[in-house]
Simulated scan of single mutants.
Amino acid sequence: MTTPNSHDSRSALARLVLADRARGLSGAAGNLALARHGGAGGRAGEVATLGAYAERLLTSAVVHERERGSSWAEIGRYLGVGAEEAERRFGAAAAEWSEDASGRVERDLDLWADVRLGVGDKRVDGGDPQVEGRIDRSWLATFLDLLAYYVRHFPADGAWEDLARRLDEPGEWHAYTMDGIFESLDLRLIREQDLFCVRVTNAHTADLRLRVSTLLEAFGAR
């Protein structure tokens, strides 16, 4: 079993941040095409800002590669530098991520809620609107909170606690419908010892399937 403190889950979190920052850079670059009235030299300033976005994106990519198990030599080869130079440039950021990742999910849910992911992830891009996986039972409420945010579902007070009580009955599937502003999801859950098997259906957009898939990966068990 893994938890959000595990290596696999840290890698999933790093991947989520990488996707978020990639989208941020894309959006910032797109703004250059808009007609704006600004002071002299304003466009140059906007392009310079893109450099800062790109540097943050590159750092996130390196952190993700380190969490995937890539060596400094492997990373450096793609950057055209040696292992020592790659570690000198990005080692502090990678170390900070590794030390901080154990509390990242619990402390910084806004990071998850604010991501806006693209639709090009081949793992989930397709016609099947169902995503399934297993999560550790201690992270059920966090998983449901984030899923509800994605579809703008506003649960009744105590809804998660009531669902958790029903899930204490082993061997039975339990259903919950998230009626949201953007989409409505149907959830089916069943308890297996300290895990919950989760099936999420009606996730019709690739964007939403990617978000659900990433949550299941980060909070999941293998």
Rank of each mutant, 00 (worst) to 15 (best):
Ala94Pro: 06
Ser98Ile: 11
Glu99Asn: 08
Ser102Met: 07
Gly103His: 12
Gly103Lys: 04
Glu106Thr: 05
Arg107Asp: 09
Asp108Val: 04
Asp108Ala: 11
Asp108Leu: 08
Asp108Pro: 02
Asp108Gly: 04
Asp108His: 11
Leu109Lys: 09
Leu111Ala: 10
Leu111Gln: 09
Leu111Trp: 06
Trp112Asn: 03
Ala113Pro: 02
Leu117Phe: 08
Gly118Leu: 15
Gly118Arg: 13
Gly118Ala: 12
Val119Asn: 10
Lys122Arg: 15
Val124Trp: 03
Val124Asp: 03
Asp125Gly: 09
Gly127Met: 06
Gly127Leu: 09
Asp128Leu: 08
Pro129Leu: 00
Pro129Met: 01
Pro129Arg: 00
Pro129Ser: 01
Gln130Asn: 06
Gln130Glu: 13
Glu132Asp: 14
Gly133Gln: 00
Gly133Met: 04
Arg134Pro: 02
Ser138Ala: 14
Ser138Phe: 10
Trp139Asp: 13
Trp139Met: 13
Trp139Gly: 07
Leu140Trp: 05
Leu140Ile: 06
Leu140Val: 14
Ala141Thr: 14
Thr142Cys: 09
Leu144Tyr: 02
Asp145Ile: 14
Leu146Ala: 04
Leu147Glu: 10
Pro155Asn: 04
Ala156Ile: 06
Gly158Trp: 14
Trp160Asn: 03
Glu161Ile: 10
Glu161Lys: 13
Asp162Met: 09
Asp162Gln: 15
Leu163Ile: 05
Leu163Trp: 06
Ala164Tyr: 04
Asp168Gly: 14
Asp168Cys: 05
Glu169Gln: 15
Glu169Arg: 14
Pro170Asn: 02
Glu172Tyr: 11
His174Ile: 10
Ala175Ser: 08
Tyr176Val: 13
Tyr176Gly: 03
Met178Gly: 00
Gly180Arg: 01
Ile181Arg: 00
Glu183Val: 00
Glu183Ala: 02
Leu185Asn: 02
Leu185Phe: 02
Asp186Leu: 03
Asp186Met: 01
Leu187Val: 12
Arg188Glu: 04
Arg188Asn: 00
Ile190Phe: 01
Ile190Asn: 02
Arg191Leu: 06
